[in-house]
Each structure stands twice: as structure tokens, then as C-alpha cells.
Amino acid sequence: MQEMINIMKNRAIELMNDGTVARVIGWSRGEFVYDMIPTVFNSVEDVEKSFAYSDFCGSNLSKYLIEQGSKEGKTLVFLKPCDTYSFNQLLTEHRIDREKVYVVGIECQGKLNYELLKKAGVKRLVSADVEGDTVTVTDAKGTYTLPAVDVLAERCVNCKSRKHVVYDELIGQSGEVLDSHRFDMVAELEALSPTERFEFWQEQLSKCIRCNACRKVCPACTCEKCVFDNDASGIATKANSDSFEEKMYHIIRAFHVVGRCTDCGECSRVCPENIPLHLLNRKFIKDINELYGEYQAGEEAGSRNPLVSYTTDDCEPDVVYERGGNE
């Protein structure tokens, strides 16, 4: 890991020094080893002083390019494989200018979820490194290993792709699109009765505190003014006052990213209530795959998702009845 950090840091400094980029979006360290802060570095001195990277750098930096990329000069951004899909999707939606960004793809073996480490009994963490299927942890109890599947973020356990779909240069290896199990849980929910499924979601969504973190972090949520903040929309709300409003917020959020959500998993990562928002997104992705053919948002910049590209083979609305919906 230290070698990787040095390479990343040196490249950032070189590219700033030779004038290729004006700023760098990366990470710096917060209070604890697991606290990695997405950071915009505006000078070589800042990079030298505080640039950091670790297996806790889960955040997807692509959305910051909307703001940072609108500034003078090019912006260097470090993107993990899954982040590159978001980047492409932002290009597709004309939210960023490709010419203004220098993408450094970084190898990724999965990122850690500190909450899971804590629940696995880790205390006063000193370091944690992912090495294939295991994670080497050093804490108050000493140095030991844990199975990676127990402490990696869900989206990493079910990683859809280790491939960087866009980059200007790479640090480490780029992998392949993986045959993941990311739709297994969706299939399990589909197999439930409507009542059981309703209860599952009712229970999950009732935890929602409406902090809006899922919306704010989402690279597909880039409206300048969200309907929930817009008094003129008639549905502006700052809190869920009942279970209807809980569902309304979530249904609108999920529907609005259909066909555009790359399944980067940021919404589930940031949700302080551990609501599995990725399952809503994946349900839509799975349905699109089944009804319109395989489609992965962000795989290719400029691609048109099936919901905005009509073909005569498209399924008819009554497909819902064939799939068990009530007439």
C-alpha cells in the first residue's frame, strides 16, 4: 500500500509541476486511520503535506468534478474501477467536460467498511489492509486477519467490475468485468410475497432520518434544484412525517436514477441507518436487463439507456401482468 500511495502522490506532484493539471482531487487523513476525507488539493505543498490513501478510501470522487471541473485548468482525479462508470455517466449527461479532467485510474481490491470492522470486534484500530480474501488488522488486541467478505463494503463483496472503463493513465492493474452475485438479494426479495416484500421495505424505510446523504452523494443526482428542496414542486419536504412520505422520497429518488444509476453503491455506503438502497437500484437494473437486454450505465460514455431509446422490440406495459402484477 505504501508503494501505491507514493506513486499516486508523486504523479500528482509531477502533473501539477509540469502544468498538466491545476488541482488534484484525492484524499487526506482525518482523525482516525479509517477516516479518509475526500480532498481538493490546490497546490503541490498541500499534496505534499496531506495527501493520503488507504483501503478506507471508499468515496467516489467523480461527482466533485462537476464543481471542480468548472474551474480554470484541468483537474486530476483518482478513480477506482466502479468510480469510472460514474465518470462516464456524468460525461453522457454533459455534467462534466472530458477535456478538463485528467483521470488516473487506481487499482482496487475492495474497500473496507469501518462499521463492519467495529461490529467484528475491532477496537482502537491501528491499520487494516486488504490482501485478496483476507484483511490484516492491527488494533489494541494485536495483529490478526479477518475474512474480507465480513468487513468489506457490500458493493465490494459483490463487485461488478474491476475494469476501469475510462482513464488517462493507470496506477496498478485494471481488471475484468466480474460475474458477481449482486442480483442475488434482489431475486430473494422478488421471491417473497407482496405483503412480505412490503413489510421488508416498510421496516427498512422507516429507519430513514431524511438526512439526504444518499441523494447528495449520488453521482446521478445532479439536479441543480432537487424537487424535494423546491417549494414550487409541491412535494418539497425536509422530513418524513409518516410512512407515506418515507416511501415517496425513496420511490422518487430510485425512479429518478433508473437507467442512469451505475450501481456505484455510494448511497448505501453513506446511509447512516444502513438502509440497503442498492437493492432498489439493482431491482431496476435487473428489470432493465431482463426486459430490454443487458445494459450497464456508464460502461460507455454517450450510450443511450433503454428508457430513453425506443425500439419496436421494447416490452409493452402489460408486461407487469405477465410478471404477476394485479390486473
Partner: peptide, 24 residues
């Protein structure tokens, strides 16, 4: 400037904070 440059403006910090007291 640097401290706030990547803040999402999400409000998580305020809703979980026991002393945050603003309302509409």
C-alpha cells in the same frame, strides 16, 4: 475553504447531533 470544499451539504451531522436545534 479547504475544510468545507468536499462537504456534501447533506445534513447528516445536524440530524444526528444532540444539540442541533434548528427547525422550520
Amino acid at each position: 475553504k479547504d475544510l468545507s470544499s468536499t462537504c456534501l451539504g447533506c445534513g447528516t451531522c445536524t440530524f444526528y447531533c444532540p444539540t442541533c436545534q434548528c427547525y422550520d
